[in-house]
Design a protein around this nucleic acid. Sequence first.
DNA 1: TACTTACATCGACGTCCATCAATCTAAAGG
DNA 2: CCTTTAGATTGATGGACGTCGATGTAAGTA
Lengths: 116, 116
Amino acid sequence: MTTDSSHPEVLCCPPLAGTALTEQDAVQMASVYAALGDPVRLRILSIIASQDETCSCNLEGPIGKSQPTISHHTAKLAAAGLIVGERRGRWTWWRAVPAQMASLGAALSDLQTPQD
Amino acid sequence: MTTDSSHPEVLCCPPLAGTALTEQDAVQMASVYAALGDPVRLRILSIIASQDETCSCNLEGPIGKSQPTISHHTAKLAAAGLIVGERRGRWTWWRAVPAQMASLGAALSDLQTPQD
DNA sequence: TACTTACATCGACGTCCATCAATCTAAAGG
DNA sequence: CCTTTAGATTGATGGACGTCGATGTAAGTA
């Protein structure tokens, strides 16, 4: 706050729109986006989403990572709600969750909507 | 399908659909999603996207982080193509890039489309 | 029972990242 | 000129993350 010689503060610092993201909401959303922020997980998700069901043994080959690494990434994708796993016999079958992906896209659309 | 003990390999390991994400594409996409994988950046983006223009001095207050941290995050968002900055006098004005956000939503929609 | 298989978990290592204090750069005012 | 201000850059630090070998666990098989 200097003197209002030419009101620079008015240009620089208007009151913010109060409906910005809550810190809690931001943490929640960021955790899901962070799950997509890894190339290996994106490729895993693309494989799973392109089929009805995929078992982990289908992933190690194309991805080219060790079994613990694949297990680590599928667990992260599942924690983010992007895939769900079902243990059937010796194999774990993964399915994509389209609703969660659609939710992410909708969130981005909401972000870009001005709220004058 | 727990009774197919005769040919488990057929159930477990069908040939993968060849159109999974390229590693290069995955790296590219992941870098953008990683930019959204931080709560501070999400809140910054929500503030910027909710206004026509926002200068950095509008961010430090609501976000509650130091000036170098804000600068660090805006640079990351800009590198991801989510915002663009224009230096005008002493202030840097940031604008959101709706096309990039829409592109991210579209990519997620493409992922969830089966390709039987 | 013992063996194999698919997957999860643990432990460790190396790297990346978020954060801030200090500093630098450039622009506006006097 | 000098001072102030907005913002970028640097360097350091603490924590989170990806990766893999080794091990554990549970289900199928002989």
